[in-house]
Amino acid sequence: MSNKFEQVIKDYGGLLSRVASTYEANDSVKQELYQEICVAVWQGLLNFKEQASLKTYILRIAHNRCVTHVTKESKLPKGASFDDADNCTMDEADLAAANSIANFDTASSIEASLIQSQKLNKLLTAVRKLKLPARQIITLSMEGLSYQEIAEVTGLTVTNIGVSITRIKKELQRQLQDEK
């Protein structure tokens, strides 16, 4: 079991980490949420029957864990958790996001990284503003899942997903353009 879990984290750790980022902006809470997701995945692996794809199975567990997290976090006063990134200054947000961008060693690449990190930060903020179904659909799509796989995770119909992706993408692009 331990080896299986380690393999899952090796293969899907980044994916699960991005699921946590979809629901939580505050760094320390995000880290906790990531840990909670991994605990849920560990427990879920005990019941995995290998009838479905492992990727969609753990994504279902991860997203459901995040929904529970959002529900529990509702007890916190507004701004204490998910809204933190929206409230902090652009410099703080950009610096935080810059740390998550690949290595840079020259002045021009620093600038490029900062621009890229600003864009990433805007994207994350825009994604977190979406309602749950839209948020799930677009992030799973950006992870490269097929419509069928997205349907397996979300429980929505393939047709609905197809229509929604185009609409959400346009909305995200519009928000990214507006903030430029």
């Binding site: 740390n99 998550s100 994207l123």
Partner: peptide, 27 residues
Amino acid sequence: NDHDELGSLWQEQTEMNLNLSEIKKLA
């Protein structure tokens, strides 16, 4: 192209650190 751009931007997030032994203990 827009979607590819969004997708590749999305993938640029770095993975958070994870203490595996802590996860096992918690589970």
